[in-house]
Design a protein around this nucleic acid. Structure first.
Length: 718
DNA sequence: TTTATTAAAGTTTTT
DNA sequence: CTTTAATAAA
């Protein structure tokens, strides 16, 4: 029995809900397919709506049905904007919407905040003094550029002198190598983090230093200088880092009234997933886009806010109703995922946190008669042996498929023992954390040439590419860059977006170290192979460009430089295959930069670097808890539940009680991934501890719940 | 002065 | 294992 609902139009935006010319035919029985709470949220009137959706309560279902509901009410797909945190979530939503309303969702805007930012910026970059071919710097690129900026700014030299007599040498300096001459100026990575936090939270740098990096206080002025130089340098290089994709989108919308109006009219309905993890910048982006009509529905769970270190502001969700007076609040509290035993443990754990919306998550599923297991183990290798053997057991005796089981941990390195054990026991697994495919050195090397071709001002890629030549280091690379910038045809290429007619003609005259001369000539010819005057862009397709680089130069370089050249070559072949999907270079490069490991189609065996068989392998998942958010498995192992590891010692040091609460939320996320079986594992002794106590104390999170909630397993040694 | 080589130390979470 | 710092060599 189908039923159609009419949305109540917002008073201020009455005219904006007009039906499209072709009335869609959508026959969904919303009432029957959703529970009461879900149904209320899905069919909520236009305006501002906060949906608090507990773990496993059908959050994705609610959002996708909401989209379908809007479509059913004659809202055109391109008037809907759906913002998510990961590409994976975005893809899953679209898939499910398409399943629900086949063919009706074409033109819907959906993606991560970063990818939507990218999309808008590609259209309007010129308004900000960039060209549309701007490059995206990943964290490694950004770090590289920041390092150069720090070096060239001279801040480190002055620091060394002024610092010397200020404080006596600390005892820590006695051990290890000689005292560093650079003084205490932060390294690129630390500085990058600091600047990023300032950007994402919309806080001035000096305030961030005071609050979080007190030990840099004396350097505040210099840090600010460097930050300014960094921004300048990015602009000169026509490059944006990840934060810029948000910050510059916000800037664009804030400063450009007509554009703002245009997009406010376009995005009549805005839906936001994982709202608890938005930061100041992202919430401003939402506000700017929604300003005109205010039709926003945000969905989230305050208990699962785990990204404060990236500037996420948990207050956004707690104070949503204050920000938007008159907002409706819906709660969805039925958990369809976990057995009652798991849910009870989760509920008791999270109750130890003070700041939260009180929720009453109720299990919909019946008990299977098994309590979560609390497993004490002697050592990490025993932990690995236990996990591995138990996986095998469950697979062989209980018929549980490999891909219905997962091992979750706080930090990558905690998975090393398990990886080795699984490899030994021939249990198939995929890792979705650690170094990303596209962040590996050889992949980035090969792509650097294409990035530079697409954006001739891309200093970072130029630098990377040129340093691959023998005898070219930082010094020579920097000189070459200056020389390159002075070539009129190069500048022309940068401003028109069309490549020069010949690279070799421009490059050959430049002075390079004698050792590099032959390769330099060769490089010019390889770049010439990129060119296709008859095509729209002036380039051959990306895959052909990649082949030129690999066949003409980089393949040989691999053989000379790496002992595992063959495996790396395979990666590049894979990359070439991947690139065949694209005929537009800029599109491909942008997507590469924004793809993460979770989206990677080529899982690898982390310990050996060997390639696994197929993308959708039947394999056990190894992932950080952060990346596990939104996913579920029948069987979940949480490993390394020891004090200092989880909760992480550094987080407590820096974040205090709030840091501890966030760690607890992370634990909660981990626990609530489990559908049927949950194993809480901790090793008692760590033989290889770098320093401090090798004896491990069980995580305090294991004391948050009633001991009767778990069953203790005694593990017998070999 | 710049690059190549070698030794040592340090590991959170991600778009 | 990967990054970084110190040292040797060009």
């Amino acid at each position: 029995m189908a039923r159609t609902y009419q949305l109540n139009p917002e008073p201020g935006a009455a005219g904006s809900l007009g039906p499209t010319s072709t009335e869609p035919v959508i026959e969904i029985d919303f009432r029957a397919e959703l529970n009461d709470q879900q149904h209320a949220a899905v069919t909520a009137a236009a305006g501002q709506t906060l949906v608090i959706a507990g773990a496993g309560s059908g959050k994705t279902r609610t959002l996708t049905y909401r989209v379908a509901y809007l479509l059913a009410n004659a809202i055109a797909p391109d008037n809907i904007l759906l913002l998510t945190f990961t590409n994976k979530a975005a893809r899953e939503m679209i898939e499910r919407v398409n399943h629900l309303v086949p063919g009706q969702a074409a033109g819907l805007w959906s993606g991560t905040f970063h990818s939507i930012g990218n999309r808008l910026l590609r259209l309007h970059a010129d308004a900000l003094g960039f060209t549309r071919q701007f490059s995206i710097l990943d964290s490694d690129d950004a770090k590289q550029l920041l390092t150069t900026v720090i070096d060239q700014s001279g801040v480190t030299r002055e620091t060394a002198n002024s610092k010397k007599d200020a404080t006596g040498p600390s005892p820590a300096l006695k051990r290890g190598r000689k005292k560093s001459e650079a003084g205490d100026f932060p390294k690129a990575q630390a500085l990058g983090g600091l600047i990023s936090l300032a950007t994402n939270t919309g806080t001035p740098i000096e305030e961030i230093i005071l609050k979080r990096f007190g030990y840099f206080e004396e350097l505040t002025e210099k840090i600010r200088q460097v930050a300014v130089l960094y921004t300048q340098r990015k602009k000169n290089a026509n490059s944006m880092d990840f934060d810029d994709l948000l910050a510059l989108t916000v800037k664009l919308l804030r400063e450009n009234e007509s554009l703002r109006n245009y997009y406010q009219r376009q995005f009549q309905f805005i839906l936001v997933d994982e709202y608890q993890d938005t930061n100041a910048l992202q919430s401003e982006m939402i506000d700017l886009l929604a300003g005109g009509h205010g039709n926003i529905m945000v969905v989230g769970d305050d208990a699962q806010s785990i990204y404060s270190w990236r500037g996420a502001n948990f207050e956004n969700i707690l104070k949503f109703a204050d920000r938007y007076p008159g907002a409706q609040i819906h709660k969805i509290e039925t958990n369809y995922r976990s057995v009652p035993e798991v849910l009870a443990l989760a509920n008791e754990s999270i109750a130890a946190n003070r700041r939260q919306f009180r929720k009453n998550l109720v299990a919909a599923r019946p008990s299977l008669g098994m309590k979560p297991a609390l497993v004490r183990l002697d050592t990490p290798s025993m932990q690995a042996a236990f996990v591995s053997q138990r996986l095998k057991d469950l697979h062989e005796n209980e018929g549980i498929a490999w891909n219905e089981m997962a091992i979750l941990y706080r930090a990558h390195f905690q998975s090393m023992d398990v990886q080795m054990q699984l490899t030994q026991d021939r249990i198939p697994f995929v890792i979705t954390s650690g170094l990303r495919f596209f962040e590996q050195a050889h992949v980035k090397d090969a792509i650097a040439f294409l990035k530079w071709a697409a954006n001739p001002l891309d200093e970072v890629s130029f630098d990377r590419a040129v340093r691959l030549l023998p005898g070219v280091g930082p010094g020579a690379a920097s000189k070459l860059w200056q020389a390159w910038l002075k070539i009129p045809d190069a500048a022309a290429a940068a401003s028109t977006g069309r490549p020069p007619t010949s690279y070799s003609a421009l490059l050959t005259p430049l002075k390079v170290p004698p050792k590099a001369q032959p390769t330099w000539i060769q490089l010019g010819h390889i770049l010439d192979e990129f060119l296709d005057p008859s095509s729209d862009t002036g380039f051959h397709p990306p895959s052909a460009m990649l082949t030129s680089v690999i066949e003409g130069f980089y393949g040989d370089y691999l053989l000379q430089s790496f002992d595992n050249a063959r495996e790396r070559k395979q990666d590049l072949d894979q990359l070439t295959v991947f690139s065949e999907r694209y005929d537009d270079l800029a599109t491909m490069l942008a997507e590469l930069a924004l793809l993460t490991n979770a989206d990677d189609t080529s899982p690898r065996d982390g310990s050996q670097g060997r390639r696994k068989q197929q993308p959708n392998d039947d394999a056990v998942a190894l992932t950080s808890i952060h990346q596990a958010k939104g996913l579920e498995w029948k069987v979940v192992f949480l490993i390394w539940l020891t004090e200092g590891m989880f909760p992480n010692a550094r987080v407590i040091d820096e974040g205090g009680p709030e840091g501890l609460e966030e760690e607890r939320r992370l634990f909660y996320v981990g626990v609530t991934r489990a559908m049927d079986q949950l194993y809480l594992c901790y090793p008692e002794f760590w033989p290889k501890a770098y320093s401090g106590d090798a004896f491990q104390i069980p995580s305090s999170f294991l004391h948050d719940f009633d001991p009767a909630r778990v069953e203790e397993w005694n593990i017998r040694g070999f």
